[in-house]
């Protein structure tokens, strides 16, 4: 896809970081040596995207290029390389669904099918209501709780068709469920209950201490 097809048709004429974000930029830049300003390109693009309804207009890319002292094309390279940056407007809930092998083996196709059934969108599309966008992405590193999706900043794990359906229903009503496993698993512990480390085994040779209460 050429650039014109990758970016939004309607580009704003201006982009300026908010006063609050300008302060944050100072903090971000301070993390890197002065002659290595380029390193700030990722956090700054992220900041710009958060300020601008979760997508980056070209003016924002140019603003970041100016701050980082980089050529515009270099910033555009970064922005097009990572799926975390959106160059077109996305819905309020931006769903990144993992389709890499572990999630796929555990039923990511069902998750995708559910989204298609309920919202009528495939990867790269935004729903008619404008509230949801879907993007199929590669591994997001939550394989232990596969299949999973990332919605804005949060992971929703252990999904199946029904759970995805419920998730979408609640988001439609703007009732954002807590992040993590939809089955209530803590982290990636075994189901229904932990199978190891269930009781305290004293360290061999450790002194018995009456005050030490592990229970």
């Amino acid at each position: 896809m050429s650039i014109s097809r990758r970016i939004a048709d309607n580009q704003p004429d201006h982009f300026a970081f908010s006063a609050e974000n300008k302060k944050k930029i100072k903090t971000i830049l301070a993390k890197y040596p002065k002659e290595r300003k380029n390193s700030a390109v990722l956090p700054l693009l992220d900041l710009a995207q958060r300020q601008h309804d979760n997508w980056l207009p070209m003016k924002a890319i140019e603003a970041v290029a100016e701050i980082c002292d980089m050529a515009e094309i270099r910033v555009l390279e970064v922005a097009t390389f990572y799926t975390m940056f959106n160059l077109k407007p996305v819905g309020k809930y931006f769903i990144q669904a993992c389709g890499t092998t572990p999630c796929w083996l555990r039923g990511s196709d069902d998750v995708m099918r559910c989204i298609k059934d309920k919202l009528g969108i495939s990867s790269g599309e935004t729903s008619a209501c404008g509230k949801f966008s879907l993007l199929e992405v590669e591994c997001l590193g939550a394989c232990v709780n596969a299949p999973m999706v990332q919605i804005n900043d949060d992971y929703y794990e252990d999904l199946d068709y029904m759970a995805t359906s419920e998730l979408i229903d609640r988001l439609t009503a703007d009732d954002v469920p807590p992040a993590g496993s939809v089955r209530g698993r803590q982290g990636s512990q075994p189901e229904p209950a932990p199978t190891s480390l269930t009781k305290i085994v004293p360290f061999p040779g450790a002194k018995k201490d009456k005050g030490d209460d592990h229970a």
């Binding site: 050429s2 650039i3 050529a71 515009e72 094309i73 270099r74 555009l76 390279e77 097009t80 390389f81």
Partner: peptide, 18 residues
């Protein structure tokens, strides 16, 4: 510095800015 490679993997393309 006007030329660059946008995108990644199979969708990588060489282009000038805009």
């Amino acid at each position: 510095p006007q030329l660059g490679a946008i995108g990644r993997g199979e969708s990588m393309e060489i282009t000038t800015y805009l």
